[in-house]
Design a protein around this nucleic acid. Structure first.
Lengths: 388, 388
DNA sequence: AATCACTATGTAACCGGTTACAACTGACGC
DNA sequence: GCGTCAGTTGTAACCGGTTACATAGTGATT
């Protein structure tokens, strides 16, 4: 130890002060390689001595600061393990050189990327959008990046997106729902990165869940309507294919009704996606049912908006003749001429808690499922059953 | 060449057929290291001979297929440069071993990550949401991943998000708008990765633009209203602070009016964000103006929805007493009791073209700015000026 | 037959960090 | 005076791919 192979004085001999780069070094640092080339054109034989100071990298920082590469790395990653003096000196050099650690190199050697992947059915739907925003903020607060993918409610696409995210290197995965194909399941257990189910809650689940209890929210909604005297129900459910949350909501309604001896007749239960036009169309279909239901429960916000708008267009008095309620509280629900009674889920909490939970899992902490609060917001679209 | 250092027969001697892994090898492959550890526990001295066949990596694939690492790499990246025979053999082994290339290693050595960063003001607004979806699909089609960040219309946040994306390693950047701070500008020119401006169009711009011509769309809208006889205008603009698109739309309106000798009086021009409540509030304010305008142009869809709903609430006949038009065509615009005349921008084209353009730039192809089409969609909310 | 151009493949030096392990230092106890 | 222990710091071997350059093979040309 002591003198390096270039024959210059040892780093130790100049370790007492910050070494300012001579002009020549600045010039060589400025020599920019064309991007996309990626290989050092003319390192030929001389690579040893001084050439490796060209680009700003950890080794360069170490050399200028007069410390080892390990120390620089520690200053960045575990500052408390380095003496005060070295820490400030190294930080100063980092600042001065404008060094930015290369994430790929870091990922390669440390086996973690600092990125979390999340796969949502859609990115712009009210509840998902809010969750994404909150998740991104929560991850950023703990120095992680969010990689988003979109499955369009297609299980195959979801699987392939998961694959891609894993290839790309994510330290954790946030998924939506808890039902998935056997192949996907086995993929998830093979790769050994932590993941969780969001927007669902199941205390028994072996994989952590973060979300509202979809069935319970809907039960409460049924209770609300029953207490208003309603006995004949219709439901415009969100399509339950590939969507266990929607299925849970539908079943929540069914079970709550069953508990008080009621049921939705077959012609009163329809399913649709999540746009206004669909809500309108399905509402029309329910209108034709006899006897006509006095309360209609919609599986999401857009279906509810469609139903309410179509009711107005068809001259149906809401809530005089019929009550209509929804799920998910977007701004529009309270701004329409007839504000809509709905279930409000703290979707931003879903995002925030999901982020924190998956990070905790990565850090090896024990975590459990978390139920996110939801409540019904009563507005003008629900009222007492008509007196016939 | 010929025999490897483990003393086994040379790869060449068994190059004529696919070598099936002996059981012993499978066993050692199954020995899984705990994730998060990342260091090979006991490689101590023996690392050379056969130990490096443990985990599935490119070298392992090469060994099993009886080819060099370079060949495996080429099979993956430039298949056409490898003979048919080797290609199929290697692909078979890749399949058989279930090898997935490590993205970090690839990024480190090739200097490209296969990821594109995009920073949008918000992710769930109609036009951005559609663009994001389309962009993601277009990138996936060319084997790239989209990294999304959100600036919340805050230039500082936008800058810091850009920094983060660059640290994380993106090959290109898609930004929104074309005005930014000098510091951000200089950062963009320092780092040498391609980027473009989306949702704006400027044929003169040195950095490629992909978007509608905000001013022109609004001019057309003004022409439409003027042709209906309107002379007194109001505008609920989207806030123009940190938003050159909104400013362009406002100026487009102003200039088009000026061309026919008209102007919006000061009290007829208000600014708001982008929610319904804001649209309602601002509409009320314009109602108080005297003389009351006969046509109101809104800077985005939510402001227009708010204005139309508030008009209904206030008993203002639309379009009998007053015409109200918007910008951006989301489903709601056509489903409200009074469907709203608006500007429809092909936002998905913005996303698709932006993706292709930035990839072309990365590949060194020459690209130019592209104007994305937009058109006004006339609906019930705009009509002839009232006859006083 | 020697030479040349070209293609297919292998060898090994990288990319830029992290971290196990060793080496050193000073304090403390006996 | 010496062994032990805890706290710092350095050395160098990795992580798992890519690719410049060398080499071998194959016809075609002279």
């Amino acid at each position: 130890m002591g003198s390096d192979r270039s024959g210059r004085t040892s780093w130790r001999s100049r370790a007492d002060g910050l070494v300012i780069l001579p002009a020549a070094d600045y010039a060589s640092a400025g020599r920019q390689e064309r991007s996309g080339m990626g290989r050092q054109g003319s390192r030929s034989r001389e690579q040893g001595a001084t050439a490796d100071k060209a680009r700003v990298g950890l080794r360069r920082v170490a050399a200028v600061a007069g410390v080892s590469t390990a120390t620089v790395s520690r200053v960045v990653n575990r500052p408390e393990s380095v003496s005060e003096e070295l820490r400030t000196r190294v930080n100063l050099v980092i600042e001065q050189l404008g060094w930015v650690p290369n994430a790929a190199a870091r990922a390669l050697s440390s086996n973690r990327t600092g990125a979390i992947g999340a796969i949502f059915p859609a990115l712009a739907l009210g509840d998902f959008a809010r969750a994404i925003d909150a998740m991104q903020d929560a991850l950023a607060a703990r120095n992680h990046l969010l990689l988003l993918a979109r499955s369009q409610y297609d299980p195959d696409l979801e699987f392939s997106q998961a694959r891609k995210l894993v290839e790309r290197g994510v330290d954790g995965l946030v998924l939506v729902g808890s039902t998935r194909s056997a192949a996907f399941e086995s993929f998830l257990s093979r790769i050994e990165i932590p993941y969780l189910n969001s927007f669902v809650f199941d205390a028994e689940s072996p994989v952590p869940c973060v979300g509202p209890d979809n069935a319970v929210s809907m039960s409460e909604m049924v209770d609300h309507l029953v207490s208003l005297g309603h006995r004949r129900f219709g439901m415009i459910a969100q399509t339950t294919r590939n969507n266990d949350r929607a299925a849970a909501r539908r079943d929540g309604v069914r079970n709550a009704l069953a508990r008080v001896g009621l049921a939705i007749p077959p012609q009163g239960l329809v399913e649709g996606e999540w746009d206004i036009a669909e809500g309108r169309k399905l509402f029309r279909r329910i209108l034709d049912a006899t006897p006509r239901p006095t309360a209609i429960i919609c599986g999401n916000s857009m279906l509810a908006v469609g139903a309410v708008l179509e009711a107005a267009a068809a001259g149906v008095d809401v809530p005089g003749e019929m009550s209509i309620v929804g799920y998910d509280d977007i701004e529009l629900m309270s701004e329409l001429p007839i504000p809509i009674t709905t279930v409000r889920v703290a979707s931003d909490d879903v995002g925030r808690v999901a982020a924190d939970t998956v990070l905790d899992m990565i850090e090896g902490r024990a975590v459990g499922s978390q139920r996110i609060r939801s409540q019904i917001v009563v507005r003008a679209s629900s009222g007492p059953v008509p007196s016939d």
